[in-house]
């Protein structure tokens, strides 16, 4: 009987998870209500920089769910209280976590955010520069060797492409004319 109960709980969980997996965020039925003096454009300017988990990837400004509607109205209230854009973003980050803004609001995290790709790019740049420098260095020795030993380069030698196009055309015309 105990196994039966467990199976049934599992059944219940599966039904519910199935329902939750397929359920869509509850859509806002009514329009947003903002306090007087706050326009939709004011709200959207701030809301487009804040993200809630419900509509993934879409900012609070454009998400149709009731959750985001509630957040837009919260933004409107804060605007009516005279808060600035940065203060509002800080307020949301303090309450709902730093993940709600596109770039972390705390200084340490923001610096780390940009430090990592910049430093990796700089390191890559150093490696690339070093390699180009190496190529230049090998030039002297290789030219001497090639000249002295009259070596064949064992790769295909294409037509160089920094030739003046007019000259190239005359050349081709000459060659074709000879056939």
């Amino acid at each position: 009987m105990k196994v039966f109960t467990r199976v049934l709980s599992l059944v219940g969980i599966l039904i519910f998870v199935g329902m939750m997996a397929s359920s869509q965020p509850v859509s806002a039925q009514g329009g947003d209500k903002y306090p007087p003096g706050v326009t939709a454009d004011d709200v959207y300017k701030v809301a487009s920089q804040i993200y809630c988990d419900v509509c993934q990837g879409v900012s609070v400004a454009y998400c149709p769910s009731t959750q985001c509607q509630a957040w837009r109205e919260e933004i409107a209230d804060l605007l009516a209280q005279g808060k600035t854009e940065d203060e509002i973003k800080q307020h949301f980050a303090d309450r709902y976590g730093e993940k709600v803004t596109g770039v972390p609001v705390s200084d340490a995290n923001r610096r780390l955010t940009y430090a990592i790709p910049i430093s990796l790019a700089v390191v890559a740049g150093l490696i690339v520069s070093f390699q180009v420098y190496q190529w230049r260095r090998r030039e002297t020795r290789a030219i001497q060797v090639a000249r002295a030993a009259n070596l064949n380069e064992n790769y295909d030698r294409p037509v160089p492409d920094n030739v003046d196009p007019a000259y190239l055309e005359r050349l081709m015309k000459l060659l074709e004319g000879k056939q």
């Binding site: 020795r141 060797v145 002295a148 030993a149």
Partner: peptide, 11 residues
């Protein structure tokens, strides 16, 4: 004149 032989040997 260019010290080629030395380089050739090394090569």
């Amino acid at each position: 004149p260019y010290g080629d032989q030395e380089v050739l040997d090394a090569y």
